[in-house]
Computed example of a mutant assay.
Amino acid sequence: MNRSARLVTAALTVSTAMLLTACGSGGSDDSSSDKIKGADAGAASSSSASASAASDIKRPKITLPRSLQVTFSGWKNSDPKLQAILDDGRQQLLGSYSAIVEADAESEAMTFYNTGVALTTGKEWVNGFVKNDLTLIGEARAYNPQTRISPDGSGTLFYCVDESKGATKNRKTGETTNTPADKAQVLYRTKLSKNDAGVWQTTTVTTTQGGCQ
């Protein structure tokens, strides 16, 4: 299922509160064989965007409101190259959340950290929230990231997101919809490509509801 198809379902039912289980077109060649196991017990980081190790790159500032808190557990790697993928993958997720909160599919963070299919479907995904007057509230925790660099030079990043304390909120009515418990642990499979500026941009996103149970 691709992101645009998930948007149609979301527009009709809004059954999953955070609606962050949209499936990106494509995916990595190894997405069917790699599985993330249990949660990692690493330290959590702030929901505010942190700068990547590459300080010479001018990056967009990403700030989430207090009504939406996102933490990251175990997003550290001793290999600087893999850490760079983790850093930019984290910013991509935060940028997507920020675009929804700001109701801006053309936000700087969206276009900075996404490219190709991920950018196209990501904009459609955000616009699905905008058209339905929805925003995100509550808490989300991204944990157990697993990353590597493929022989072709592309990056692969798998991780889980716990949406059990997250919800969508209608901007007009104030009505909230919580995430169903059986779908709250979402598995993300992403592919990334390093651009000329040295940024690891996400090229595809595939997600599985309940994939980290």
Rank of each mutant, 00 (worst) to 15 (best):
Val14Asp: 12
Thr190Ile: 04
Ser98Gly: 08
Gly95Ser: 08
Asp79Tyr: 10
Thr115His: 11
Ile149Asn: 09
Ser45Thr: 15
Ser46Trp: 06
Ala184Met: 10
Thr9His: 09
Arg66His: 13
Trp200Met: 01
Gly89His: 09
Arg90Thr: 06
Ala11Ser: 14
Ser67Cys: 03
Arg3Leu: 09
Pro60Leu: 09
Ala43Asp: 14
Glu175Arg: 08
Gly138Cys: 13
Met18Gln: 00
Ala10Asp: 13
Leu12Gly: 00
Ala10Gln: 12
Thr208Leu: 13
Ser25Thr: 14
Ile100Leu: 09
Gly210Glu: 04
Ile85Trp: 04
Asp133Ser: 06
Ala54Thr: 05
Ala99Met: 03
Gln83Ile: 05
Gln213Arg: 07
Met110Cys: 04
Gln83Pro: 11
Ala41Pro: 01
Ala167Trp: 07
Ser45Asn: 13
Gly116Trp: 08
Asn114Leu: 11
Gly155Phe: 05
Asn195His: 07
Lys76Ile: 15
Asn132Gly: 01
Ala197Thr: 12
Cys160Asn: 08
Val130Gly: 00
Ser150Thr: 08
Met110Thr: 01
Leu192Phe: 11
Asn2Val: 12
Lys183Val: 09
Ala43Tyr: 12
Leu19Met: 10
Thr176Glu: 15
Gly74Thr: 01
Tyr143Pro: 02
Ala11Thr: 09
Leu68Ala: 05
Leu19Asp: 11
Thr179Phe: 01
Asp34Glu: 14
Val8Phe: 07
Ala22Leu: 11
Ala41Phe: 14
Gly128Ile: 06
Thr177Gly: 00
Val70Asn: 11
Gln201Glu: 09
Ser15Gln: 05
Thr173Asn: 01
Asp87His: 07
Ala197Leu: 13
Ser193His: 04
Leu93Asp: 10
Asp56Ser: 05
Glu124Trp: 08
Thr177Met: 07
Thr190Pro: 01
Thr177Phe: 06
Asn195Leu: 10
Ile137Arg: 00
Thr121Trp: 14
Val8Ile: 10
Trp125Ser: 06
Lys76Val: 15
Trp125Asn: 07
Gly42Thr: 01
Glu102Asn: 13
Asp162Leu: 08
Ala142Ser: 14
Thr176Cys: 03
Cys212His: 03
Pro65Asp: 03
Ser78Met: 13
Pro80Trp: 02
Ser52Gln: 00
Phe72Leu: 12
Phe129Cys: 10
Leu20His: 00
Val8Asp: 11
Gly122Gln: 01
Asp104Gln: 10
Tyr188Gly: 07
Thr16Ile: 13
Lys81Val: 14
Leu119Ser: 02
Leu19Phe: 10
Ser48Gly: 00
